[in-house]
Amino acid sequence: MTRFQRRRFLQFASAIGLAVGLGSLTPATRPSYAQAAPRKLALLIGIDEYTNPQIRPLRGCVTDVELQRRLLRDRYGFADTDILTLTNGEATREAILGAIAQHLVQQSQMGDVVVLHFSGHTTRDVIADGNCKSGDCWIGALLPTDAELWGEEFPPSAITRSDLEAALSPLATNNLTMVLDVLYGGSFASNGSGFAQERSFFKGVLLAASTVDQLSAEVRLEERYAGAFTHTLTQHLWQQSGTESFAEAMAAVIPATEALARENRIVQTPVLVTARADDAQQPIYFTAPLVPTETSPTTRPSARSVTRQNHC
């Protein structure tokens, strides 16, 4: 039986303000000669507001999109025209699947770099296909802005892990990074033990904010909220002077995210799941960062006192 949950909030009393991105950089353009540089495509989705008033709103998902957009554009050389964002009412089931097909699948070629980010509500259900020997084999589903309430099955508008597999399988490139700042993140790559499996169901790399049975936190910055995982990940990458692999970056991001949650008696452990054995050693986002021209912005919370709100 599915249960509707939401990301749990951590409200900080005071904090340093959200970052202002670096000065505009010249957008990376695709050369016209035969040995074209890899194109960098991103689809960033953040949903704080749901059309059904019975679904509680979130607070930091749209901010997550902005943090990720600035990082990809100013630190990793993604062109503005190659970054598509869908927020709140724009992020319907039809729009999300259509953007995956048209912006990512149809435009990407072999060797290109693709990033798919989702921050918002999710749900999960037990797999009933006979492959699991216990009741802890889960499959996750993203909830678009037009999600309905439901009973014992996924709502019709849910985008299940199987839907994502089908939508992303035609990608010509294996250089896909999928970032899910959601609860039950491991349910998008789980096995019968209930923990994230060694290999991803998707091409490339999955970075999930939590394991199959965990909530995910939102931190309050000075004026806005952000997902604890997205906040920690983007701020860590802003501070690096050179190229880091997925494994190296997550070795720092995982304990930093855990610490924010643990201090407030919430257990949240981000996970790194790969499709190929050597993907964890590839540069994060499958591309090297640009050399920074200014001091990197910081948005680290400066206080630990919190008010926690009950989840649905």
Rank of each mutant, 00 (worst) to 15 (best):
D279W: 08
T269K: 04
M250F: 11
L260F: 13
S296F: 15
P301V: 10
A228P: 05
V273L: 04
S296D: 09
P292Y: 03
A275V: 00
T293D: 13
Q282I: 00
Q268C: 07
A247M: 07
Y285D: 00
T230A: 11
A280V: 04
A256M: 10
L260V: 12
V253F: 05
T230I: 14
D279E: 06
L233Q: 05
A275W: 07
T295V: 12
Q281A: 09
A226V: 09
V273E: 03
T298N: 04
T269V: 11
W238V: 07
A277W: 02
S302H: 04
A275Q: 05
Q239Y: 10
E258T: 01
Q240H: 11
A228V: 14
T298M: 10
Q235N: 15
S241Q: 14
A256P: 11
I284C: 05
T230Y: 02
L272Q: 00
H236M: 02
L233M: 14
H231T: 02
T269S: 07
A280N: 01
L272N: 05
E244C: 09
P289H: 02
T298E: 10
E244W: 15
T232E: 04
F246Q: 04
Y285W: 15
L290R: 12
Q281E: 11
E258C: 08
E294M: 11
D279V: 03
L237I: 00
M250C: 02
A275H: 12
A228W: 02
S302D: 10
V291D: 15
E263F: 13
T243A: 06
Y285N: 08
Q240S: 07
P255W: 09
V273P: 06
Q282A: 13
F229D: 05
A252L: 13
P292A: 12
H231M: 14
Q268D: 01
P283R: 01
S296G: 11
T230G: 07
L260N: 11
A280W: 01
Q235M: 13
L272D: 10
S245M: 09
T243W: 07
F246G: 01
A228D: 01
A275G: 03
P255S: 09
F286W: 06
P301E: 08
A252S: 09
Q281D: 12
A247C: 03
F246Y: 15
P292I: 08
T243G: 08
Q268Y: 08
A251Q: 07
E294C: 10
E294F: 04
A226P: 01
T295N: 06
L237Q: 06
A261C: 15
V267M: 13
F246S: 01
F286C: 10
A251N: 08
P289W: 03
A252T: 09
T269C: 05
F229K: 15
S245C: 10
V253I: 15
A288Q: 12
V291H: 01
W238S: 07
I266T: 15
A249K: 04
V273G: 01
V273T: 12
H231W: 08
P292C: 12
A226F: 06
S302K: 12
V253S: 02
A259K: 15
A247W: 02
E263N: 13
E244Y: 07
E294I: 05
T232K: 00
G242F: 00
A226G: 08
Q235Y: 14
R276W: 05
A252P: 00
T274W: 01
V267P: 00
N264R: 15
R262W: 07
V267H: 09
A288N: 08
A251D: 11
